[in-house]
Nucleic acid binder design. Structure first.
Lengths: 229, 229
DNA sequence: CGAATTTGAACCAATAGTATACCAGAACTT
DNA sequence: AAGTTCTGGTATACTATTGGTTCAAATTCG
């Protein structure tokens, strides 16, 4: 139905396009849509068609239309910041970390400074004192990963990692994660952290990234193991 | 901010602009807005229109107006879209895309469906009709990358990519980016988009990821080339 | 073919927007 | 302290724009 369609758009197609604009956020709450006559031009459809699409969207509650004034968005993009983050599942989170953190390692190799590495060294020591303290380990772990991100000197990346950390600090999660943190697991993590730090220090980008992948894979395994029980 | 250019701004449009300034943080708590007569000039609208916009914002609780004194901001900015996003540089952005998008390709291979691919196909066609229309291309391009992200079925990843798209839509950027978009460059991008789509379709994760890296590398090059001139 | 949809146009009624003038209170200057 | 300047508040008359409606012809699609 959609493969070749760029010329003739039906009312349903247009409704779909606008609906997408809204849930994507390009059209935000209280925004006014362009007038029907303009939409008719931009979508290459007659005004009546646009009108049907809008009527449909109005029934669905995406939009409200006021005579003589315009058509307005009445629908919060379901999730924006808040619930996209709040509703993230553990697996979604892991996949996102798989995207970000190996590359963060590579950039850390490029931009990291001695002071960064010293700080990470401290955090490694702190974590190694936490073999039997899941909570303390967890805090230091978060700090370690953030310190690594700070090496990149990239505010956007750091910010994204912080968003992830916010997800991780949701209550039930923290509890679940602590379940998986026996002293054996913490020991493994500590070794991996050290290896990552060393690889970054000796400026081996791919090695650092690969160890990070291993590290995340380990974490994912213990996560799935925990959710099976 | 909508499909319309910058000619005729209605009260709703102006309200939207100011609302965004506030939630973005450019207008901070207790700041005083310019006088209505000035706003009227800067937005090219009559004072009555400005007035309607402000009244609307006051009802929404963004702003408080005191006769004889001025109109003041009464609303904290969204903490999510804080400074990290607004101050991101083009290179920071590219590095972040380098982290996210290749991995998004891999996950798209895992979770993408036919309907996703059809939609991306449509977008490829749309982009190929835009060899001489940088603005149209740019919009379709953003949609393409988002559609790819949607394949992952990972709300967190999609949300992160949206944040990036928000950075990219900052005004000065859009201008800069359009400078780099001659029809030759657009042609190259189109080929790469097709290749990515095909690799995802044929379920070749690493191939898809590698082409995405190439794609981003191309984009980074034309960016640095543009900023040298 | 036949039903459903889309089109294009004209007209209506509601609302928004423009331009101007004047008022009263707040803030600043002297 | 007094006066000037700036600010939002209000009113009005006119124009422009917008959605609402209708209808017949053209098009699409099963």
């Amino acid at each position: 139905m959609n493969a070749l369609a760029d010329q003739k758009l039906g009312a349903a197609d247009i409704a779909a396009l606008i609906r997408r604009e809204i849930s994507k956020g390009s059209l935000q709450l209280h925004d006014r849509l362009p007038p029907e006559r303009v939409l008719s031009e931009t979508y290459g459809a007659a005004r009546g068609t646009i009108r049907k699409a809008l009527t449909h969207l109005e029934k669905e509650g995406f939009v409200e239309t006021r005579a003589g004034s315009g058509t307005y968005v009445v629908h919060k993009p379901d999730e924006t910041s808040a619930s996209a983050i709040e509703n993230a599942t553990p697996l979604e989170l892991m996949d996102t970390r798989f995207a970000l953190e190996p590359h963060i390692c590579r950039l850390a190799v490029l931009h990291g400074r001695h002071s960064d590495f010293d700080r990470m060294e401290d955090l490694c020591n702190r974590m190694e004192d936490c073999l039997d303290d899941p909570v303390g380990f967890s805090d230091a772990d978060t700090d370690f990963h953030r310190a690594l991100a700070e090496c990149t000197r990239n505010g956007l990346l750091i910010w994204m990692l912080d968003q992830i950390a916010n997800v991780r600090s949701e209550d039930d999660w923290t509890r679940m994660r602590h379940l998986t943190l026996d002293s054996r697991t913490i020991g493994i993590y500590n070794v991996q952290h050290r290896q990552i730090l060393n690889a970054v220090r000796t400026r081996e980008p791919e090695r650092a990234a690969n160890i990070m992948k291993e590290h995340l894979e380990t974490a994912r395994l213990s996560l799935t193991r925990a959710s099976e029980t």
